[in-house]
């Protein structure tokens, strides 16, 4: 990892990897969508509408996965002072927020025909919504502090405090939900998912993950370039006219 602390070496690697990761993400998504939409059987209870699962569930997984990677990158920045760890955390946040929004929106689209309502205050929905706001707070903190190194250090702390808090929030929301309403809208666990459904789901999850890596590489390169640009500009301003 230390070898890629050099932004230029990282940039070269990222540039080589970017087209391949995008291609892999597209190929995986096309395979997963084909298997999910045409090959997999419709759900015996929910019919064809259940197929939205293949875009919804991986998005929900990614919303948590990206936050976890963000927190780990922040911890790495704290411990090893790896110069690209902050960049990775910053670049992850908007991607994670979009995955979270996607999970919420597809969830609403799925909820409307299945539960007859766009939104229920179910524990999982509520937690994902709160997660979205945690992402927003992180992004806002980055944009509020102008100087990148200082913003990076503040954002690290926020990401870690958020990571400590997420299990507590999750627990409190679960507790609140069982107190206020019983799980009347959620289906009880049906039969285990058949392989014909599980395979496309896992392929889609892989597609989302590879897409995350591809977007992350691009965004990290942009961030590194922007920082260099900022340094150059500040250097030019400092020059006597």
């Amino acid at each position: 990892m230390q070898a890629y602390a050099n932004p230029q070496r990282f940039g070269r690697l990222a540039r080589t990897l970017t087209p391949w990761t995008f291609a892999a993400a597209i190929a995986l998504a096309l395979t997963g969508l084909y298997l999910g939409l045409f090959v997999a059987p419709p759900d015996y209870q929910q019919g064809e509408a259940q197929r939205i699962m293949y875009v919804h569930v991986p998005a929900a997984w990614m919303s948590m996965f990206v936050y976890a990677s963000m927190a780990m990158a922040s911890a790495a920045a704290f411990i090893w002072k790896h110069p690209l760890a902050d960049v990775a955390a910053k670049a992850s946040a908007p991607i994670g927020a979009v995955f979270t929004a996607l999970a919420l929106i597809t969830g609403m689209l799925w909820g409307q025909p299945m539960w007859g309502t766009w939104w229920v205050w179910d524990a999982r929905l509520t937690s994902v919504l709160i997660l979205f706001f945690l992402y927003l707070g992180y992004i806002v903190l980055w944009s509020a502090i102008e100087e990148p190194t200082r913003a990076a250090r503040a954002a690290r702390i926020l990401a870690l405090v958020g990571a400590i808090n997420i299990p507590i929030i999750k627990f409190s929301v679960d507790w609140w939900n069982t107190l206020h309403q019983t799980a009347s809208v959620l289906r009880t666990d049906g039969p285990a998912m058949p392989a014909a459904m599980l395979t496309p789901l896992l392929i889609m999850a892989l597609a989302y993950t590879v897409l995350y890596i591809a977007l992350l590489l691009v965004r990290m390169r942009i961030e590194v370039a922007q920082r260099r640009l900022r340094t150059i500009r500040l250097g030019l301003e400092a020059l006597p006219a």
Partner: peptide
Amino acid sequence: ILVLPLNIP
């Protein structure tokens, strides 16, 4: 925006 989500519990 930073504080309110963390205060939900």
